[in-house]
Measured scan of single mutants.
Amino acid sequence: MDVFMKGLSKAKEGVVAAAEKTKQGVAEAAGKTKEGVLYVGSKTKEGVVHGVATVAEKTKEQVTNVGGAVVTGVTAVAQKTVEGAGSIAAATGFVKKDQLGKNEEGAPQEGILEDMPVDPDNEAYEMPSEEGYQDYEPEA
């Protein structure tokens, strides 16, 4: 019985440690998101679009440190934060509304985080759909 109880105690310690790591990862992701939003706020009209992409990228980098179902929630929060940063930029006159959601080359930025393969159960990952990809044929 002692062996059984000791095993359960060790398992509990492992769960607590994993929860603490997840909590730490979420806190880091939130900190990076805040950094990115402050970065966007300090940019001029020309830099705002690039700044919004930076927020998304920093958040995406930190999301990889967070495991399990938390990833889905962090990704949703990050996307809403990026959308909010863009709205703030438009409201303050840093950028025109028609410039939001495009990178410096004018290509749409939507789907940055949505296409990231995420499995809350950590069982399997699927690649994003290939609808947006084109076949590449090298020139002879």
Rank of each mutant, 00 (worst) to 15 (best):
D2C: 04
V3K: 01
M5N: 02
M5H: 00
G7T: 10
G7P: 01
K10R: 13
A11H: 00
K12W: 13
E13N: 12
V15P: 00
V15W: 07
A17V: 12
A17R: 07
A18E: 00
A19L: 15
A19Q: 01
K23T: 03
K23H: 07
K23D: 00
G25V: 13
V26C: 14
V26H: 00
A27T: 03
A29H: 02
A30M: 13
K32G: 01
T33M: 15
T33N: 00
T33E: 00
E35Q: 04
V37F: 09
L38I: 03
L38E: 03
L38N: 04
L38T: 04
V40Q: 00
G41R: 11
G41N: 03
S42F: 13
S42C: 08
K43T: 04
T44K: 01
T44C: 11
K45T: 10
E46A: 10
G47E: 04
G47D: 11
G47V: 12
V48K: 01
V49G: 04
V49I: 13
V52G: 01
A53G: 06
A53K: 15
V55K: 04
V55Q: 01
A56V: 12
E57I: 11
K58F: 12
T59K: 01
Q62P: 02
N65V: 09
N65I: 14
V66A: 08
G67L: 12
G67W: 11
G68F: 02
V70G: 01
V71M: 14
V71W: 15
T72L: 13
A76E: 06
V77K: 02
A78W: 14
Q79H: 11
K80V: 07
T81N: 02
V82R: 04
V82I: 08
G84D: 03
G86V: 13
S87P: 10
S87Y: 11
A90K: 05
A90N: 13
A91M: 12
A91H: 09
T92E: 04
G93K: 03
V95C: 12
K97C: 13
K97Q: 15
D98G: 12
Q99D: 10
K102D: 13
K102L: 13
N103K: 14
N103C: 09
E104K: 09
A107R: 07
P108N: 13
P108D: 10
E110F: 13
G111Y: 12
I112F: 05
I112K: 04
L113E: 12
L113A: 13
E114Q: 05
D115H: 11
D115L: 05
M116G: 03
V118Q: 02
V118S: 07
P120D: 06
D121S: 10
N122D: 10
A124R: 13
A124L: 04
Y125L: 09
Y125T: 07
E126Y: 08
E126F: 03
S129A: 07
S129G: 06
E130F: 11
E130H: 08
E131L: 07
E131D: 12
Y133G: 07
Q134I: 09
D135V: 10
Y136W: 10
E137Y: 08
P138S: 08
E139C: 03
